[in-house]
Design a protein around this nucleic acid. Structure first.
Lengths: 337, 337
DNA sequence: CTGTTAGCGCCTTCAT
DNA sequence: ATGAAGGCGCTAACAG
């Protein structure tokens, strides 16, 4: 039913090459001819078939974005930065949501090969050694946001220094006089190979060490991501023999669980217990949670900018940019009683 | 650089048709031949070029999803239902996020025409009369979720009865003895043509009328979506001459703002003020907010199912399905003092 | 069962 | 400046 370039050519009484030139704004068409072709296009309501165009051009005008758990606030915010930046370009966004390891492997290994995309943005899924060959073999540019690997210098990366962030969070507690500081996080080792909890843990230990506080293994609990598991871990921590006076949660979502546990344990926050989260998601402002603010939106925005740049000029060398973190002090942290 | 079907055929010593059959699981290939082809595919790390495939098939294997404000929890949840269902199919998802009226018009009118998609899912953006011709002219199936229009019977729709939902929410308050019930919502008329706030308002008025309570215009405040504007509206309501004893917020996000205002006004919830929200987003459970639960995830899931069905059998007549709403009573509503 | 061939719709030389 | 022709990689119909 849809008109093709041939229909237009016939109606305008020209060759199909000429129509193609008009479509692509080639200067090699005389004004009268162009007029006639334009008229025919209008007349037939002709819209170039993108698929055919891609095949011929060898381009797809599509960017693939691979993200884990896109319902989590921190990922949403990054995606938002990506989407809004991409919307201003000629590219569209195909989204792959990863919520299982099988899907992770599938996405990391197959998506790049399908030739359905001109570029790839990967969020938080750090490639492992087995993934590397796949990524290395890809010919389209790849941008990694919040993903790390020693051998990743071939790709452009946007990072936020989680070690420094963890250190800053814990330093804040130390400056308030706390010395019994616990850390509640996702599992440090996950099949998804997330690095943030691990890096923040490193920062946590660094801060303790610098302050001359011994690390106590029983003060570090790890479990599934989410409010409920964090809730359980906090309960366990608070009901133990030597409860901490402050808890650093690896995300604001988990901080919510900690606050819940404190409430149930009859502890006042921040008088009896200090709590600091991470991310500064929207609800944290509402609840007055002290947290580490990450530039999530900006990381998505910047990732797209760099991807588009290397699409425009493939000779561009990959870069690695760091975005700052910022301590936001609100009402859930106070001096140690 | 990438291997093509021809390379595989040559290496396996067969014709390209046979390779194509193997790729597409055609039964018309002998086992030994299939083995040999599989081996060649493996050997060359061959992945079929999707673009060429699409062109040949006349399909795009892509579904376009148009959603407004995809960072809002209610939309995320629908998207999640869509993504997870689509991930099980051969289709991919291209996402269009709408946060301005210009973008809304662009998406509603141009996306369908680009032939980059086999089907379209539109969330919450009810077409207006000017949009209709565009949608009507599309040849791919369209599914509308949470979008209404008198002339939309040509399309499959998934709806949740917001009038009934609004009525149920207010009836709950009435049964608790409240008679001074306010309603805080988004603007009833928006350029995006959202219908939910409007329909819930209708339900609100119906419930009042059935209970013989006169509608008081000063009890209905409308403003930008979000916690902060709802906060302001609630403040205004609570500091007026004749404050309500209960507030129905058009979304849980707005209910948060109301709770904030109550706190600042020194009102205890639910003793002094009852608050009911809408959506049952995750945080509502955490904060114990009474609300109307919508089957958001399910609406996305069902929308995809119906879209895939009509893709498989284009002769299917469009249907209109309603999903139920459910009252979830928690801690922010109580008997009128 | 399998190889061959004709498109799918467009872009891009190559002549003219 | 323009028309004709070849090709992008794959599918499907057609012979064998």
């Amino acid at each position: 039913v849809a008109a093709t370039i041939r229909d237009v050519a016939r109606l305008a009484g020209v060759g199909i090459g000429t129509v193609s030139r008009v479509i692509n704004n080639s200067p090699l068409v005389s004004e009268p001819t162009r007029q006639r072709v334009m008229w025919a296009i209008e007349e037939l309501a002709f819209v170039p078939n993108q698929t055919a165009r891609k095949l011929s051009l060898g381009k797809t005008l599509t960017i693939s974005v691979i993200t884990p758990f896109f319902t989590r606030p921190a990922f949403i915010e990054r995606l938002r930065g990506i989407e809004q930046t991409l919307a201003k370009s000629a590219y569209e966004m195909t989204l792959y949501n990863v919520e299982s390891v099988a899907r992770r492997d599938e996405c990391l290994r197959e998506v790049p090969l399908r030739e359905r995309t001109d570029g790839i943005i990967i969020l938080s899924l750090s490639p492992n050694d087995a993934d590397l060959p796949y990524l290395e073999s890809v010919k389209v540019p790849i941008v990694l946001i919040d993903a790390q690997h020693a051998a990743l210098t071939r790709f452009t990366r946007i990072l936020i220094d989680d070690v420094a962030g963890g250190r800053a969070a814990v330093n804040h507690l130390i400056e308030l006089g706390h010395r019994q500081i616990a850390y509640i996080s996702d599992p440090l080792e996950t099949p998804f190979n997330f690095t943030s909890s691990r890096d923040r843990f490193t920062g946590y230990r660094q801060a303790l060490q610098q302050a001359g506080i011994a690390f106590r293994p029983e003060y570090h609990l790890q479990g599934e991501h989410g409010r409920a598991p964090a809730h359980r871990m906090a309960k366990q921590l608070l009901s133990a023999a030597n409860p901490p006076s402050a808890i650093f949660a690896a995300s604001d979502t988990q901080a919510l669980g900690v606050l819940e546990a404190a409430r149930e344990s009859g502890l006042r926050v921040p008088q009896d217990l200090s709590v600091i989260g991470y991310d500064d998601i929207e609800i944290s402002e509402y609840l007055g949670i002290t947290t580490m603010r990450q530039q999530l939106y900006e990381s998505g925005l910047r990732g797209v900018e760099l991807l588009l740049a290397s699409l425009a000029d493939p000779s561009l060398a990959p870069v690695c940019e760091y975005l700052p973190v910022e301590l936001v002090v609100r009402g859930t942290t106070a001096a140690c009683p």
